[in-house]
């Protein structure tokens, strides 16, 4: 494990019954980086996170967090890892300031100022009982408690699930403030692509238990290109799904009104040749947004299994 990696998995694999939920995962989070972990529900994100935290045994392979194998994390190492779980569990009978005191008494490196600032961003009254809070505010308290314990590594499992726009903004601000020093790292699992594009340095994209993309956001965007093609039939299917026309490095082809959008990774001479061989009325390059690029990968997994090519991954 490189000195600079805070998370490292080696061929990490987990089966549930006969189904591999995470398969041969090789992946690292460099120190000081915010990594957005993306994927459809069931892609293996939460299972991976649970193995990282030592809450679930890998079937094969291994993972290390802060240089320690996840299966033997000591309480000292655990204290350096912060994580929130889906749904943000808190004791409903506590008041917010009692959550703060609870945190202060259970964490040696508690940062009360950070807690204060974070809950204020979420618009939370510290006298309020947890049971009275909205979902977004509960997320705020849970996140503030986790971050105020001053961890080096933060693992957030879909913290934005069901948040209102104000809480989403507060969440992004809190994550960015937490990382200000450049020494702390975050693994952020999320479905909110706009937020990931805002805050993350890197993007890791899981499809069916394997990692298909793991790079910086800018690099990811730069490698993806798209064309809109005005043709009566799908250019990859030629009217017959069992006989697709091969386009090297294709990620996805989807209908766009009367036209087709073909998304490609690292287009080369062969790609261009294949594209120009398609009979079409018009073909032009299309702008690719971060969302387009991610969706191209995700929807391929859901719909276009037959168009998998080795190259595109």
């Amino acid at each position: 494990m490189a000195e600079s990696d805070v998370i490292r998995t080696r061929r990490l694999t987990r089966y549930f019954g006969h189904k591999a939920v995470v398969e041969e995962l090789d992946f690292a989070v460099p120190r000081g980086q915010i990594v957005g972990l993306l994927g459809l529900n069931g892609a293996g994100k939460t299972t991976t996170i649970r193995m990282l935290l030592g809450l679930l045994e890998p079937t094969r392979g291994s993972c290390e967090v802060l240089g320690v194998d996840s299966r033997c994390l000591t309480p000292e190492t655990r204290a350096r890892i912060g994580h929130t779980v889906e749904g943000h569990f808190l004791y409903p009978w506590m008041r917010v300031r009692e959550c703060e005191r609870f945190g202060r008494e259970t964490h040696p490196r508690w940062d009360g100022g950070f807690f204060e600032r974070s809950v204020r961003r979420f618009g939370i009254d510290t006298e309020a009982k947890v049971a009275w809070l909205s979902r977004g505010q509960r997320a705020g308290v849970s996140l503030a408690s986790t971050l105020a314990s001053n961890p080096e590594l933060l693992i957030l499992d879909d913290p934005a699930l069901g948040l209102d726009p104000v809480s989403r903004r507060a969440l992004n601000e809190t994550i960015l403030e937490f990382c200000q020093s450049g020494q702390r790292s975050v693994l952020l699992s999320s479905h909110l692509l706009d937020d990931v594009e805002r805050v993350a340095d890197r993007v890791a994209l899981m499809v069916d238990g394997t990692m298909v993309v793991n790079t910086t956001i800018d690099h990811f965007r730069a490698r993806i290109a798209a064309w809109t093609i005005d043709a009566p039939d799908s250019p990859t299917a030629a009217g017959n799904l069992s006989m697709p026309v091969p386009i090297p490095r294709i990620v996805n082809c989807r209908p766009l009104g009367q036209r087709w959008q073909v998304t490609v990774v690292d287009p080369d001479e062969d790609t261009r040749a294949a594209l120009s061989a398609i009979e079409s009325r018009a073909m032009e390059p299309a702008d690719v947004t971060f969302e387009d690029a991610v969706l191209a990968y995700l929807s391929r997994s859901r719909v276009y299994h037959s168009f998998y090519t080795e190259d595109a991954s």
Partner: peptide, 12 residues
Amino acid sequence: RVVPGSGAAIYR
């Protein structure tokens, strides 16, 4: 002002 999810990267 920046708009995520647009054709241009945020730094651009």
